[in-house]
Design a protein around this nucleic acid. Structure first.
Lengths: 145, 145
DNA sequence: CATCTTACTTGTGAAATGCAAGTGAAAATA
DNA sequence: TATTTTCACTTGCATTTCACAAGTAAGATG
């Protein structure tokens, strides 16, 4: 069981503030999206995302996400150059947050990826269950290596 | 009906990216929290929040939230110095996002305000319904002035 | 063994942030 | 009515973060 750290120097004890301090920037949630919904696992795959994150920012964010226990990094046994990044349970726990953010933007902004949005709208819980199951399979497979 | 703007210069059409571009900083969601859950309505009330936002940042964020149609600002008829900030329908639409972020942080970080968290955990939909109703009452009352 | 790939790091300028102080209009007070 | 206080900002400046381009080291490939 991962422990809850008292986590130093928070601006306040408010849980929303904690989320904002950890995730409140223009890139972290996009990296998590890539892992959760697109199956991205390596530095190179994250770099290939359409938004175009800079290499130094990506390295910084991956380090912070790892420090926060949201992702893990492990060497690829079949290619010693690669690090495989995976979401932890804490990381996959963000699925409802991402989902609500997608639904909000889809409802109020001019956005694309309507296929994904309709899936979420049709049955949110089923969508989340599918996301969690894909994650569980991928995680078990990785631990078997 | 508020229209969805094509909104220029987005990094991508992904709805999550839209949310992140609009809300992805260390203060915007805390201002929305103050309005949604604490009943804050004026500049001064936002400044009094425990996290301690700087005056220039607050002015900037309120302006951006207004530009995004998330809040409105109107002169207080009973005190010409004050501006009353209120959440729009788009703004109150963020309630599920805030709720999930609170629940995630409460589950994985060491945070406070357990009373709020337990309310959300006990019945999420009821909590959201209460938030929406408070908002509707406040908004109608304000429009009557 | 030379080349390519992967995951970074470094350097630099631009932009955002944080802090302190100041401003102007409106309201409260003497 | 004159003075002080309140409110909602704005301004200036130092610090931090961000973005872009270029470079590097370890491992894989041909």
């Amino acid at each position: 069981m991962p422990q809850k750290r008292p986590s130093p120097k928070r601006r306040s004890g408010c849980p929303l503030n904690a989320s904002v301090e950890i995730l409140g920037d223009r890139w972290s949630l996009l990296i998590i999206r890539d892992m959760m919904l697109r199956g991205s696992r390596t530095y190179k795959e994250f770099l290939e995302s359409y938004e175009g994150i800079a290499t130094n920012i990506l390295a910084d964010r991956l380090g912070k996400l790892e420090a926060h226990g949201i992702v893990t990094a492990e060497r690829d046994p079949s290619d010693g150059r690669k690090l495989i990044y995976l979401l932890t349970a804490k990381g996959i726990g963000l699925a409802p947050v991402l989902t609500e953010m997608v639904l909000w933007a889809a409802a109020h902004e001019d956005t694309g990826n309507q296929a994904l949005v309709r899936q979420m709208q049709k049955d949110k819980e089923q969508f989340l269950a599918a996301v969690r199951q894909r994650w569980a399979e991928k995680t078990i497979r990785s631990m078997a290596n």
